[in-house]
Structures are given as structure tokens and as C-alpha cells.
């Protein structure tokens, strides 16, 4: 197992993504960050904090669970649902930024887009991820990337965050077929 992104790099990536989001949308007013639980939700909270530190004010932040919209539900045992918390302003007319920890096949993001479509019609949807590891199975691409990490399919990328895992780091390990 090798650390590919130590704690200081994660913090820097989050601050940079916050700047990029603000630059793209010309300020924080129209942005809604939606993190995909579990770790994407914590990353969204951190990006929101970074945006608030830059702009002052409060950027809208929430969570979006994709479990019920996944296309691989029938290939595994049912999972417990995680919270979906949409900010009171809703998503209608907002620039929604989806936040996840790792972008891999793209299937989670497809499910998130479907879930989002049930909630309303955002003005735009973009995607921020901490790690893009490649191997897309769908035509999906991230707009804001913490770090591109080329991997082989069998390797396992693990994002650890203080809120969940007690430490901040991204590791890569040889693994079985994933």
C-alpha cells in the first residue's frame, strides 16, 4: 500500500477546487454543492468551508444518496440507505456541483444525475472529485479534479478522511479484481 495523496495535498486540492468552482460560476450565490455519501458528503462540506472562507457568506451544501438509483442494485445484496439532504433553496435554477471522493466507472455519477433529475431541474450540473482514477464505463467526465491518478483496474484506491477514517490520506494498493 502506497500513499499517493498525503493530508497537506488533500487540503490544497480542496482549496484549489473551491477557487475553480468560484471562478467558473462567478461567485457562490448560485452554487449548490451536493456530496455523495459517505466521503463525498464530507468533501462537499470541506469545499463549502473553503468557499465560505474565500467569499464570506454561506454556500448551499447538501447530500445526495444514489443507492436507490444504481443500475447494479440487482448484482449485490441491498445496502442501507444514506441520507439525502437537499438545501432549502432546492436545486431548481441552481448550479449544482456534485462532489464525490473517487471517480471510477462513472456509474455512481449516472445514478446521482438520475436522482437529481427526480428532485428538479438545475441550471447546470458539474462534478468535483478528489481522485480521478480512470476506467470510465460511461461518457462522464469530472469538471474539477483534485488529482488524476492513473491506475490499473485491479488496484484499489482508498480515500481516508478524518471525519470517517480518523486520518486524511489517499492510498493505492494492489488488489484482486474489482
Amino acid at each position: 500500500m502506497k500513499t499517493v495523496l498525503p493530508a497537506p495535498d488533500i487540503s490544497r486540492a480542496i482549496v484549489r477546487i473551491a477557487h475553480e468552482i468560484l471562478e467558473r460560476y462567478d461567485g457562490a450565490d448560485s452554487i449548490t454543492l451536493l456530496g455523495i455519501p459517505t466521503r463525498g458528503a464530507h468533501l462537499a462540506t470541506r469545499i463549502a468551508a473553503a468557499i465560505n472562507a474565500i467569499e464570506g457568506g454561506q454556500v448551499a451544501v447538501g447530500t445526495l444518496d444514489t443507492t436507490m438509483h444504481r443500475d447494479d442494485l440487482r448484482t449485490r445484496s441491498p445496502k442501507a440507505l444514506l441520507p439525502t439532504l437537499i438545501p432549502t433553496a432546492g436545486v431548481e435554477g441552481r448550479h449544482v456541483v456534485l462532489v464525490d471522493d473517487v471517480l471510477f466507472s462513472g456509474r455512481t455519477i449516472r445514478a446521482a444525475l438520475d436522482a437529481l433529475g427526480e428532485i428538479g431541474r438545475p441550471t447546470s450540473v458539474s462534478l468535483a472529485v478528489l481522485v480521478d482514477r480512470g476506467h470510465r464505463e460511461l461518457p462522464i467526465k469530472a469538471d474539477f479534479v483534485g488529482k488524476n491518478i492513473p491506475t490499473s483496474r485491479s488496484e484499489i484506491i482508498k480515500v481516508n478522511l478524518v471525519e470517517v477514517d480518523g486520518t486524511d490520506e489517499v492510498t493505492i494498493a494492489e488488489g484482486g479484481v474489482k
Binding site: 436507490m68 438509483h69 440507505l81 439525502t84 427526480e118 428532485i119
Partner: peptide, 16 residues
């Protein structure tokens, strides 16, 4: 509880 929260909010129907 989670499904109640989703259905009370904007997602009335789920494709599951």
C-alpha cells in the same frame, strides 16, 4: 426513516 424523508421531499417515486 430515510425513505420517508425522501418521499416527504421532492422524490415521490424511485426507480429501484
Amino acid at each position: 426513516a430515510e425513505l420517508a424523508r425522501i418521499s416527504d421531499g421532492p422524490m415521490k417515486k424511485l426507480p429501484t
